[in-house]
Design a protein around this nucleic acid. Structure first.
Length: 488
RNA sequence: GCGUAGGUGGCAGAGCGGUCAAUUGCUCGUGACUGUAAAUCACGCGCCCUAUGGGCUACGCAGGUUCGAAUCCUGCCCUACGCACCA
């Protein structure tokens, strides 16, 4: 299996060196266990490779780490950050992280999936998405080409004939007639045109500057499927559940893990390896499928590291944008702090483990104290929130956010910073709040007012629904909406 | 293709000619209480109107019947389930 190339050492290992090696082992063990659901690495192939690389970061041997990215939701939240921070640690040890944008697989999952594609347009859209994505993760990951790359899987799943004719894209061809050279326009609905566009839009060519394009044909797909049994695929919990509930299960959904596995195989072809795949615990099955597919195609199977899912602010579902229970990593410090303070107490230990750098031992202490009732959950949460804000905004902002929170919510003072609106005197208050997106409609305004939810300076309840702006106002709407109105 | 059951507010799910802007549960919002939360209690949750009232738009889409339709009819679209056909 693993060909051990023993490193030559001159003489005995020095004390210092040994100490450093122990430190590295400790670090690697933490990376591979903290917040980890499962780590599948038979024979310790990956672990050993990582240790070797960490000891000798300059060695030419590359370690490729695959991470699947959803192309549709570029908003990064703390849940993603758990995995991203793990990736960063691996980068620090010399691994190269590949973001695999599942644009093709997302499309087949999507019922509105189009059958044909305008690669120029789609490439532009994905690239724009990717850019906002990268802007956000810049806080966490290193983006230098030596340790980072990204690619979309439509690069190999789309075939030449999937490309839709676009008359605006000109393809020219040079032919030699006698001694003359003539340039001809290739008609856009021909195979030659498509082939040219196909070639010119593959990221393997445009971004990675490879001469050869790896792609997957139906033949290749079926060849892989020859080695995958129906029951192996249906093992998946999600599928079992559907079958048990008698709800529908479509074939393309069943194939999904295989396609994802093929991604790993193609990455191996393109980057010369795919040593580890990281994802949430919900991806474990799919990632393991990658191992199968790689074995079938005579590649060294990737190790699999699944990371515990971070539960969202509601304490029930996993953190996600669609559940609106998330903390975005670009949230402003005050919001971030406030949101973190609102998590249920029971979630504290898992947030400490997954979202901070608090050493494992210390984290255990905190949990014990909480259980024994020796520490006030509020105070622990304050520290937690401050630490997390610090990771994304630095210590100064984190301290500020903390004191702003104490002032606003514990001491019920008004925050220093709030949105400001300049309006002409005589404007209806209701209109101002709607224009400033504080409220959605006048009905809502009336409702809140009659409930006493709109307060001047956070104290005096306003009651006149037809109130007009006559002077500068600082308003508190409900618990955490504030606005400063400047009369002009 | 045939048959059956369906498509209602953020979700689940009632209503089956007027009393329906639509019961109820969840989610959500607000107030009280708190630790910021949770739990609990109370109120609210289409939009517009100087309003214990009036209007508008909504129950898959398009028409129709009726004084009156979420509710009845016709066509279309979509979904699930069963059967058949093909392999």
């Amino acid at each position: 299996m693993s060909k051990k190339t023993k490193k030559k050492r001159c003489g005995s290992i020095g004390f210092m060196e040994k100490n450093a090696e122990n430190e590295l082992i400790k670090l690697i063990d933490e990376i591979l266990t903290r917040g980890v659901g499962e780590f599948i690495d038979p024979d310790n192939t990956f672990r050993e490779k990582l240790l070797k690389k960490a000891k000798d970061p300059k060695s030419k041997e590359q370690i490729i780490v695959k991470f699947g990215v959803d192309p549709t939701r570029p908003d990064i939240h703390l849940g993603h950050a758990v995995v991203l921070r793990k990736l960063r640690q691996l980068q620090d040890l010399g691994c190269k992280v590949i973001f695999l944008v599942g644009d093709f697989t997302a499309q087949i999952g999507d019922p509105t999936g189009k059958s044909r594609t305008r690669p120029e347009i789609e490439q532009a859209a994905i690239e724009a998405n990717m850019k906002t994505y990268l802007d956000q993760i810049d806080k966490i990951l290193k983006l230098e080409p030596a340790v980072f790359s990204w690619i979309r899987n439509s690069d190999w799943f789309y075939g030449v004939s999937d490309i839709a004719p676009n008359p605006e894209t000109k393809v020219e061809m040079e032919i030699t007639k006698g001694k003359e050279k003539i340039t001809l326009q290739v008609p856009h609905n021909t195979l030659a045109w498509k082939a040219e566009v196909f070639k010119n839009t593959r990221m393997q060519v445009t971004h990675l500057h490879r001469a050869q394009i790896h792609d997957i044909t139906l033949r290749g797909f079926l060849w892989t499927l020859k080695h995958v049994t129906h029951s192996r695929l249906l093992e998946r919990d999600l599928f079992q559940e559907r079958i048990k509930n008698n709800s529908e299960l479509y074939m393309h959904e069943v194939m999904y893990p295989v396609l994802q596995g093929i991604d790993s195989y193609v990455l191996d072809l393109i980057y010369g390896g795919c040593d580890l795949e990281i994802g949430g615990t919900d991806q474990t099955f799919n990632m393991l499928m990658g191992r199968e597919v790689m074995k079938v195609n005579k590649k060294a199977p990737q190790a699999v590291l699944s990371i515990d899912l971070l539960v969202g602010l509601d304490g029930k579902e996993k953190m996600s944008k669609s559940m609106d229970n998330y903390v975005g990593i670009t949230d402003v410090p005050n919001d971030m702090f406030g949101k973190l303070m609102s998590i249920p107490d029971a979630l504290i230990p898992s947030y400490v483990e997954l979202c901070t750098f608090t050493p494992v031992l210390e984290a255990g202490e905190i949990t014990k104290k909480l259980q024994a009732g020796k520490a006030h959950p509020r105070d622990i949460k304050m520290d937690l929130a401050e630490q997390i804000v610090e990771i994304y905004h630095g210590p100064t902002k984190a301290k500020e956010a903390r004191s702003a929170f104490v002032a606003t919510f514990q001491n019920k003072k008004l925050p220093d910073e709030m949105p400001e609106a300049k309006v002409a005197k005589g404007t209806l208050l209701a209109d101002v709040l709607i224009n400033e997106d504080v409220l959605d409609s006048k009905s809502e305004f009336r409702r809140l007012m009659s409930e006493g939810a709109i307060r001047k300076d956070g104290e005096e309840k306003l009651t006149d629904p037809m109130m007009k702006i006559t002077e500068d106002l600082v308003l508190k709407v409900g618990k955490h909406r504030f606005i400063r109105i400047v009369a002009e």
